[in-house]
Design a protein around this nucleic acid. Sequence first.
DNA 1: ACCGCCGGGTGCC
DNA 2: ACCGCCGGGTGCC
Length: 853
Amino acid sequence: FLWIDPARGRFQYNTFRGERNYSCFSSSDFYSSLGLEDFLSVGDISGTEEDTDSAILYGTLRGSVVGLRYYTGIVNNNEMVALQRDPNNPYDKNAVRVNNVNGDQVGHIKKELAAALAGIMDSKLAVVEGVVPYGAKNVFTMPVQMSFWGREENREAVLDQLKRHGFKLSPPLKGNRFGSKWISGRAGPSYSAPVHAAVQLTTEQLKSEFDKLFEDLKEDDKTCEMEGAETVGTLLLPHQKQALAWMVSRENSNDLPPFWEERSDFYYNILTNFAEKKRPENIRGGILADDMGLGKTLTTIALILTNFQDGKPLPVERITNDKFCEDQFEQHIHQDFNVNIYVYYGSDRSKDPSVLSEQDIVLTTYNILATDYGIRGGSPLHKVKWLRIVLDEGHTIRNPNAQQTKAVLNLEGQRRWVLTGTPIQNSVKDLWSLISFLKMKPFTDREWWHRTIQRPVTTGTPGGLGRLQSLIRSITLRRTKTSKVKGKPVLELPERKVLIQHVTLTEEERQVYQSVKEEGKAAISRFFSEGTVLAHYADILGVLLRLRQLCCHPHLCVNTSSSFSAGESEFSLVFDNKTPEELRETLVKKMKLVLSSGSDEECAVCLESLTVPVITRCAHVFCKPCIFEVIRSEQPNAKCPLCRNKLRVEHLVECPPEEEIDSSNGKKSDQEWISSSKVNALMHALIELRRDSPNAKCLVVSQFTTFLSLIENPLKESGFAFTRLDGSMAQKKRVEAIQCFQSSQAGSPTVMLLSLKAGGVGLNLTAASRVFLMDPAWNPAAEDQCFDRCHRLGQKHDVVITKFIVKDSVEENMMKIQNKKRKLAAGAFATKKPSASEVNQTKINEIKALIDL
DNA sequence: ACCGCCGGGTGCC
DNA sequence: ACCGCCGGGTGCC
C-alpha cells in the first residue's frame, strides 16, 4: 500500500540540519506567517489552461472526416469525437486528427476545413468539439458536427478566420430541428447540441443542490456495517463500520463503473455513446469524504488490515493496544502494528523500488512524490505496482497543472482511495483530478470530463447536475458532523465559543509600533504612487509581518528588521549598479527571508506547497517546475504570474544548500527576558484559569514559533508544566509532545505551545478545552482548522477559544478582512474564478485596508 | 482538337 | 467511391 499525506510533520523523521527541508521552511510558510496566503492563491494563473468556464458557443458547422479506411478507431452514430491538431503531419501542417473517446484515431478533417481550423485551434481562439451524427459505418468518409466554443471577445476573430476559408457557422440551434435530425431517440449526447445558458443556476441553488448529494444515507450499500479485522485493535464506531463495509464492497465489487451499460455484446457509455467489447474496469476505490474528525484515517487503516486479498485480512500479528486512538497515523499504526512500514521521506530514502515492494505500507508526502517524479532514472514510487494507493487530504491534488497532481495521476495501483473532508472546495472543476485519479473512463481525459459533466453543470444544462450527482453518489461516501446513524448523530460535540480579548499596547510598545507603521506606510504609499505595489509585494508582506510581530512582542521582529530602515536597498531591486553576484545575493537573501518565517503555505502557480523553491528577479517565489512550465508555455514573453514582470529562466535563483536557515530565530539566551502586553494578557488568563479549574488544559497558538519560545519564559516563571509542538520538531519529539499533553496523569502539562499550522488536520489534541490564539491568521479557515484539533471526536468539555487582538492595529484590520472572507466563503461554491486583475485589485484593496491607506 | 466527351484508374492528411 | 478528380484516348453524322 502506498499512503500519501500532505502533512510532512506527520511522519517526519529527519531534521533539517545539514540539508534543505522545504517542508519545514517554504516560502509559502512565509506568506502564511503573514496570514495572507489567500492573497496569493490566485487560481490558475499559469496561463496554460484555456478558461473553459467562461466559454460560450459561437455556433456549429458540418464537416467531414476522411481517410477512415487507414485507421482502426471506430465510432457510433452520435458518438462524441475529439479533434486534435496534428502539426507534424508530413503531408499537411494544418492537419487535424479525429479521435474517438478511447483516443483511437478515426480519421482526419478534410484538408480545406483543416486549413480553416488549424489557425483557430493553434491560437486557442476557440475549442472545437465534434460529434459524428450518422454514417458511423461508412468506409471512406463520415460527417462530423462541430461546435465552436470560446470567449466572447474572440468570437469575431473566429468567425472571420472561418469566413476567409469560406466557412460560416450555423447559429447554436435550440434543440428541435437539430436534435431530431441527428440525435436518435436514445439517451444520447444532449450536450453535444448544446443550448447554452438554458437555465443558469444561481450559486446558492447550485450549492444547495450539491449538498443534497449526500443527504440520502439510506442507500443500502452505505449503511451495512462491518467489523474490522481483529488486528485493527480499536473498536470502530457505527458510522466507521459503515464506511468500512462500503469501502470493502467497493474494492471487491465487479459492478460496471457509472454511466456504462452492458448491451448485447459490448459495453456502452451513455454519456459519450462510446462502445467497446472490453469490459471497462470497475473503480476499485472511491472518495471517502467524511467531515474532519469522523475517523477517515482510522477507517482506512481498518480497510488495509481487513481487506487484503479475497476479502481476507492482512496476515499480521495481533496488536496489543487497548487505548482508543483516534485518527493519527503514527499514533495508530506506528507503534501498534506488526507490519512493515517504510517512511519514504528524507534524503536517505531508498531509490530502490524493490525495497519499497517488500513493505506492507509505504508512507510518503505529495512533495516527495512530486519532487521524485521529475528525477533522472524515474521515481521508485512510480516503478512499483501498488495494491492500494491512499491519498490522504486528497483535495491537495485539485489543480491539474500542479506537479503534485501529475505525479499522483501517474501512480500505478488497482485500489485507489481519496480521503478528504472537502471534496468540492470551490467548484466542480476541483473534482476532475480526483475522478481522474480513480481512473474512471472516460474522465481521465479532461475533454470528456468537461464536455459531459463540468460544462453541463456550470451552464445549467438540464440533467447536468443529475449526472454529477449520480457520479458522485456512486463513488463517494460522505457524512457530516451532523449526519445521523440509526437516528443518532455520528458525532455529538460539546459547544464551542470564540471570545475576542482586546489588548492595549503600552506607551512604549505603541511608539515602536507607530514608527515602524509610519515608515512602512510611507514606503507603501510610494509604491502606490509609483504604481509598483505588485512588484514590491514581498516587501509589503514584510512590512505587515513586522507590524503583526510587534503586536505580539517587540523581540519578534529584531532579526527581520535589520535592513528595513537602511534605505532603498530592501525595497527596490536596483539592477543597474549591481554585479550579477550581488544581485544573486540580494535575491537569495529575499528568498531566505521568505523561507525562514515559519509555518506553511503555497506556490502561487500550483497552489500547493513548494517543491524546490526558486525566486524570480522580481522577488517572487514559486516551485521550480511550476515557474518553468509558465515560462515554457508563455515563451518567448513569459511574465511573472504575480506581478507581470518579464521572466527568464536564466534569472531564476534557487535556494543554495543551506547551513541552517533558522539559526538566529530561537531564544536569545543572552537577551534579557521582557514581557509584552499580549504576553501579560495571556498570563493573566492562564493564571486565572489555573485558579478556577486547575485540571483544564489549554493550547497557546501562534504563527510565530519565536513567539512561542518567548512565552516559555513566563510559563516557567509561573510554574506551568507545558509542552510544545511546532513544524520544525522531529517526528519522535512530536509524538512525545502529543502523548505527554494528552495524558491525564497528575503533573502532565496543562499548556501546549502550538504553532498554528503544526501537524495535519489529523492532529488530535482533545485534552485541551481552552485555546488562546495569540495572533490572528488572515485566512479564517486556518484558525478554524486549528480549533478543530481539540473540538473534535473525543472532546468531553465545552471548548472556549480566546483570540487576542491588539486595539488600533493591523490585527484589527485583519479581523475585518477575515469577516469579509467568511462571508465570501459562505456563498462561494461554484462562483466563477476571479480574473488575475480582479485578484490583484483585491490584493491592493486589502493592503490599503491593512495599513490604513 | 490550344477544345469537349468518353471511360479507366484511382482515392486522407 | 453507385462519388469527384485526373489525365490519356479520341474526334461528323
